[in-house]
């Protein structure tokens, strides 16, 4: 058994699997930091994956095969994610709906809409056709050609974008007036309102950002890993992202590391299977790990996680 090879494979796979989780988790962070619970991450990822797959497929078909088609698919997914997050935003911000219920409704709606239109578009088949075009890995010349460690110097463009998103999120959240307003609205909306911050507008923007980012996560999975969209393309990643967000204590870089850690659990599975270690540690336990850890961290057994104070509470103008 070559330990270096295992390490390289694990690192490479961790980054591939984590990218989507980081996108969605950071998206959820924006929404929750503004005080809006977002259980709809899963549904938003589904919409992103579906849109990414469908648009890429048809654009690629009409262009006759082109390297820009996955990019068009990716950007369409972002737009779709923003649009799809609006019902949740309207319900939880304007109509003071129970944000958890509205999120659940959106998750239902997403899988229904995605599979329904997949069937309409692909002659009754519950999955899209396999994409001919998807993202190619970016490589650092020479280093990427090395057989054992080469994989460390290859990455999908989405992974690069993911790092940028984390850095930008950190800056936006902690170094800009908008970030300050966002956090204020999530901690104490009434005080923020008194200071002249538009609570509703800030929350709308936050939820839309979460839609965009979660959809990017979904599109990432389709355009780098699975190459088509089925009902099982997104099965729980949105909830793992939610777990990562809590495990990362609603903080951008910590959330990224939490998502990387949970992504590693998934990567471990494929690496362990490859080397026959799953005979000793059952796969199911590796699946369970992120969820158990999240409960432990919430219970205060591993550190403490404090949610934004106004999380889940609708703001009523003029309320006391």
């Amino acid at each position: 058994m070559d330990w270096l090879k295992i390490f390289v494979d694990l690192t490479h796979n961790t980054i591939v699997f984590s990218t989507a989780l980081v996108f969605a988790a950071i998206g959820g962070m924006f929404s929750e930091r503004s005080g809006v619970v977002n259980i709809a991450l899963e549904g938003l990822m589904i919409i992103g994956a579906f849109t990414g797959a469908v648009v890429t497929f048809f654009v690629d078909q009409s262009l006759g095969g082109s390297p820009i088609s996955p990019w068009i698919g990716f950007i369409s997914a972002i737009v779709a994610g923003i649009i799809f997050s609006l019902p949740h935003a309207v319900a939880s911000i304007r109509y003071q709906a129970d944000q958890v219920v509205s999120g659940i409704a959106l998750n239902f709606l997403a899988i229904g809409v995605a599979i329904y239109f997949t069937k309409v578009l692909f002659d009754g088949s519950a999955q899209t056709k396999t994409l001919k075009a998807s993202f190619d890995k970016w490589e650092i010349p020479f280093l990427a050609d090395q057989s054992t460690i080469g994989a460390l110097f290859k990455a999908y463009p989405t992974s690069v974008i993911m790092i940028l998103v984390v850095v930008i999120s950190y800056v936006v959240l902690f170094k800009t007036p908008f970030g300050l307003r966002l956090r204020a609205v999530g901690e104490h909306p009434r005080a923020a309102d008194t200071m002249g911050i538009n609570v509703f507008r800030t929350r709308y923007i936050a939820v839309m950002i979460s839609g965009a980012l979660a959809a990017m996560g979904g599109a990432t999975i389709v355009l780098t890993t699975t190459n088509n969209f089925t009902h099982s393309t997104i099965s729980g990643q949105g909830f793992i992202a939610l777990a990562a967000l809590i495990f990362g204590k609603w903080h951008p870089t910590k959330t990224m590391f939490a998502a990387l850690f949970f992504g590693m659990a998934t990567a471990l599975r494929s690496v362990l299977q490859q080397f026959g270690i799953t005979d000793y540690i059952p796969v199911d336990f590796i699946f369970i790990l992120p969820y158990v850890l999240t409960i432990l961290v919430l219970a205060g057994l591993i550190g403490r996680a404090d949610a934004p104070s106004a999380l889940g509470r609708p703001y009523e103008l003029g309320s006391r």
Partner: peptide, 11 residues
Amino acid sequence: PFEIINIVIAL
């Protein structure tokens, strides 16, 4: 497609 009813229930 059967999924239409999931959409209805979600709505």
